[in-house]
């Protein structure tokens, strides 16, 4: 239609369909995403972006060989999706226990594109599997600095930090994340728990109260909610119901 005006100098790279399916992928609707991607490929064999989504679905279903193949095809995408596809391939290689290949691929990727938070996440996840907790923590920090709005990055940071008992650093990093998404009750809850570990009870109590107060009106993960409820109960003076 004549009324479609394209942005000058900005070649669009992402289809609406991709955006919607990506959201469904994050919601765990794997079968739906796979079916849609296959439908797209059946009418457009040259489409590349479905392979990236298929890679994630394969990864979630632990079919690492298929995931590697899908991500490899997706590396034909333009940036930043190409880097994301390479990071996905690294995760698939780790999943298939091809650790050396994965490490080489991801370190090369991050050398050329240090702002690829998917790469830091993938490397951190792999290092964690190899027992390098310190390395994993550093990758988790880098991933969250580059992209503080990714909940995958935040969860990885929280899990790694808790495992290493790096509560003070975790609280600091989560405060930065909180500035990027101050409405996110999961982030506030996780930060409150790390503050509590550090003995900063007043700050922790303030955040716990906020999470509990707003929880009926905004999403909170069950894991965080349970932990927040337990922490809040433990903070109450004895005798208070």
């Amino acid at each position: 239609m004549a009324y479609v005006l394209m942005l000058e100098g900005e070649e669009p790279t992402v289809e609406l369909d991709f955006d919607r399916l990506y959201a469904q992928l994050l919601d765990g609707e794997h079968d739906r995403v796979r079916a849609r991607c296959r439908a797209v490929l059946s009418v457009d064999n040259g489409a590349v972006w479905p392979h990236l989504l298929l890679g994630y679905v394969d990864l979630a279903q632990r079919d690492f060989e298929a995931a590697e193949e899908s991500f490899a095809k997706a590396t034909l995408l333009g940036e930043p999706l190409r880097s994301e596809a390479l990071a996905g391939k690294g995760r698939a290689l780790f999943g298939a226990s091809r650790h050396e290949e994965a490490l080489i691929l991801l370190r090369d990727l991050l050398q050329s594109n240090p702002d690829c938070h998917f790469g830091w996440y993938a490397l951190g996840e792999g290092l964690l599997e190899l027992g390098d907790y310190e390395g994993a923590w550093q990758c988790a920090e880098r991933a969250v600095v580059v992209c503080p709005t990714s909940m995958a990055n935040v969860s990885f940071l929280v899990n790694t930090g808790a495992r290493l008992s790096r509560h003070a650093e975790l609280a600091t990093r989560l405060l930065e994340v909180q500035r990027a998404q101050p409405w996110n009750l999961d982030v506030r809850g996780a930060r409150a728990l790390s503050l509590l570990h550090e003995g900063r009870r007043a700050e922790a109590a303030d955040e716990l109260m906020r999470v509990l107060s707003f929880a009926p009106f905004a999403p909170v993960s069950p894991t965080i909610m349970n932990a927040v409820q337990q922490a809040a109960a433990a903070l109450k003076p004895s005798g208070e119901s």
Binding site: M1, L5, L7, P12, V14, F18, D19, A23
Partner: peptide, 18 residues
């Protein structure tokens, strides 16, 4: 106007003629 939810891909979004 059609809503778009992902800030990361918003500026690269393709404007569909439909």
């Amino acid at each position: 106007s059609a809503p778009w939810t992902n800030p990361l891909s918003f500026r690269a979004a393709r404007l569909r003629p439909s």
